[in-house]
């Protein structure tokens, strides 16, 4: 039952973070930049889960929800979040995953990669936008802001990942 609750809570949190992203995050903007709570959650979840397919599946689901509710071209966030979750899981195999600073650094890098690809795919060809101007003015500050939120989100994911484990280990 506790294992089921763990998966259920993780799934509900995807929706909760997506709702907070379009409401709460509007009020905590700094210089008009907001963090990406969904991405932070996906990376935390990848680092605290035990299966790469599971992590990738959650990335896929979170991106799909984002694309369905707010996407302009279907599938961009779906693919990006799925690959970033898989990358975070794979990279996490080579370091001590339970260290929060690892999670913060992964998020910083992950957010820069995700937003850079999103910007390149959506704006460079169609809107003749300047990449480097947006990189320093929007992408990097947003990634840093997102990484700062991991101090809360990662601990939450860590607590959820322990659900069901304590009982099974004590039996």
């Amino acid at each position: 039952m506790e294992i089921f609750m763990k998966h259920f809570i993780r799934a509900v949190l995807v929706l909760v973070f997506l709702i907070l992203q379009s409401t709460f995050c509007q009020f905590i903007k700094i210089w008009d930049i907001m963090p990406n709570l969904v991405l932070a959650y996906i990376i935390s979840l990848a680092l605290t889960s035990d299966d790469i397919m599971y992590a990738g599946g959650f990335g896929f689901a979170a991106g799909l929800l984002w694309d369905i509710t707010w996407g302009r071209v279907f599938g961009v966030r779906t693919l990006l979040f799925m690959y970033i979750a898989i990358l975070a899981y794979r990279a996490g195999e080579y370091v001590y995953r339970k260290n929060i600073s690892v999670c913060v650094i992964f998020t910083l890098v992950g957010a820069v990669i995700t937003e850079s690809i999103f910007f390149a795919a959506n704006f460079i060809l169609t809107h003749n936008a300047s990449f480097w101007q947006s990189f320093f003015r929007t992408i990097v500050p947003s990634a840093a802001y997102t990484a700062a939120f991991q101090l809360v989100i990662y601990n939450l994911c860590l607590k959820i990942s322990k659900m069901g484990k304590e009982r099974s280990s004590s039996v």
């Binding site: 930049i33 907001m34 984002w66 707010w70 929007t138």
Partner: peptide
């Protein structure tokens, strides 16, 4: 207004 675009790129509202 119930919500705004969840990313830093678009200015869409719901």
């Amino acid at each position: 207004v119930a919500a705004s675009s969840p990313d830093n790129w678009y200015a869409e509202i719901q």
